[in-house]
Amino acid sequence: MNFIIKTLRDFPAYLWSGWGALASIFLFIALWDVGNQVYGDLVLPSPLDTFKTLVLLFDDQEFIKNLLITLKRAVTSFSFSLLVGTFLGLLAGFFVTASIVSRPIITILMGMPPIAWIVLAMIWFGMGDLTVEFVVIVASMPIIFVGALQGTRTLESGFEEMADIFKVPFFMKFLDVYLPHIFSYVFPAWVAALGMAWKVVIMAELLATNDGLGAALAISRSHLDTPTALAIVTVLIGLLMIAEYIFLEPIKREVEKWRD
């Protein structure tokens, strides 16, 4: 509770610190415009055209529907990864054998390129929701699992000893001694996994479905409709930036304040 209040209290100051970021985004848009002037509209539409198309897109029912489909797929499969990956990671972390056994498997899973998963999933599940969701889960869960595993493996026994002398009740020990440490590992893993999930969902949709933003991107490509393609990309990046800078980053700062 206290933590939420602190995060909200620091939020205005955090936003104010965003001017630098904003300036660099504008610089990027300026470079983009230079690119447009050099290579022409077909290769790289101007930022202005792209933003105009973007506005039009949001009037289009079809686009809104696709956007919601993609969001639903990303959110459901990421939430699944988050819950199951965190749970399994914590569990494995508490047992030496489980962490030793799981390590190589995780390395294999993390080393497997998502595109290979997409091919396999298309063979196994055909075209559709399940393929996309499966790929997002296998791509994002290992990241979360490793975060949770490391969080529990690196708990300091010294703190536990100290707490035991004071006869700290289990629930308080969990909240005050274990959780802050574990969370400081798990939370960055969540953020990394979210980025991964978002990228993979688009890629899987592009190859394996007829709906969603990935599919819309595929259609705009086949029509050589570069402004629409860029507008969709802008939406994708915009959504990730909102998730990251408006929600996740302030929490992360609050969580990691005590760190060196």
């Binding site: 100290m162 707490a163 002398i165 004071f166 700290v168 308080m172 005050d176 400081s184 005590w258 760190r259």
Partner: peptide, 28 residues
């Protein structure tokens, strides 16, 4: 009741000075 002081301070890094001092009281 018992308590302990170690060679290393073993303060919880995510708690401020007062919260660290009050840790044993909270447990009570």
């Amino acid at each position: 009741t018992q308590s302990i002081a170690f060679q290393d301070p073993r303060l919880l890094p995510w708690k401020d000075t007062i919260e660290n001092i009050a840790f044993g009281l909270k447990a009570m």
